[in-house]
Amino acid sequence: MGAASNRFALIEAVRGLAALLVVFSHTMPKEGWFYTYVFDPGKIGVVVFFFISGYLVIPSAARDRSAKRFLTKRLFRLYPLYWVSLVLAFAVWPSELAPLDWMANITMAQQLFGFENAIDVYWTLTIEVVLYLVITAFLVLAPSMLTQRFPLVLGSLGAVCLAAAVARWGLQTKIPVAVPLGLFCMFTGAQMRFLRNAGRSIIRPVLFYLAIAIPTCWIAYSFSTGFDETSSRYIITYIVGGLIFLAILQKPDIDLGRPVRALGDWSFGVYLLHMLFATTLVSWIDKGWTLFAVTLVLSIAISAPLYYLLERPAAAFGRSLFRKHPA
């Protein structure tokens, strides 16, 4: 591993472990009091994903200072493999969605326009798209929001989280609190990186994160909208996810070994594709360790070659477009 890669060795590897949590969540039976009120491994993995995404993406965009460069790099990083997963989803269950829903899914922003996701896990990518739109707006209109005025952005996101939670509770309806909460995790992760790079303490963003995430989850998820939401489970999810990320930051350059690094490389594919296998196989294999193992093996078997043949070359091509013409 090169010096640049080694800086984030543990962070990159933990993406693979977070993907494992998501696969575990979709292939194991989740019944009883413990799963309802305490433990949600899939969402813990997603929260870790959000923190890592913000930690890596936002400072990179602030450094590039170019909306065109930023969007091009993200387009070639995410969309090629995403489109492959969409094609495979259509091949597996072509009649699952209406034609307009399938077409909207090409954008990765289908939920913003009221269309259904082709694969359930796409909901997190909608939040990723919102992040890119926010970053692009800042780069075009107010670049200082990603540098000198970053605490203002973080504080505003915290206020939006609380306001959305209160509105959801007051109206007793499914207001998507997960969107501002996801963005809040991402921008908190970025703020921690900015402070660490400056040699400053990260205790303030940690405390602010807890001060926003806990009451937001307590208020917003105090009633269910059909997904068995409970305040305690969401509070624990966001606390544990944040603590995992905080632990990673203590030694971000620790190398867990080549297999775990490889799983981190393949994590996006595993995340996108595992539901295709899990949903199909559950007709023959009951939820449990066998379904988890078979789903994981099949997901890796597809994701690994796609990473080397498509995902990595596409990302490299996106970066190469700007090497001769830096921002």
Rank of each mutant, 00 (worst) to 15 (best):
P252N: 09
L154D: 00
I214F: 12
A178W: 11
T230M: 11
V179R: 05
T237S: 10
L210Y: 08
Y238A: 07
T188D: 07
I214Q: 02
N197S: 15
G242P: 06
I235Q: 11
G241A: 01
F208D: 05
A198N: 06
F208M: 10
M186S: 00
F208T: 09
W218S: 10
L181E: 06
I219A: 05
I203D: 14
V206L: 09
A198T: 01
A163I: 06
I219F: 08
G199M: 04
L162E: 02
W169T: 03
R196V: 08
L246T: 08
S156R: 13
A165E: 10
S224A: 13
D253N: 14
G189Y: 00
C185I: 02
T216C: 05
T216Y: 00
L243V: 14
F245R: 00
I203L: 15
G182A: 03
A213C: 08
S231G: 11
A213N: 05
F208L: 13
A213L: 05
F208K: 06
F187R: 00
G155T: 05
Y209G: 01
A164Q: 04
V179M: 09
F184L: 02
G182H: 00
W169F: 15
C217G: 06
I239S: 01
E229R: 10
I244Q: 02
L171E: 15
L157R: 00
G158M: 04
M186D: 01
T216M: 04
L183I: 02
R193H: 12
S201N: 13
G242Y: 01
G189M: 04
V166W: 14
I175N: 03
T173Q: 12
G226P: 06
Y221N: 02
G155M: 03
G158W: 02
A163L: 15
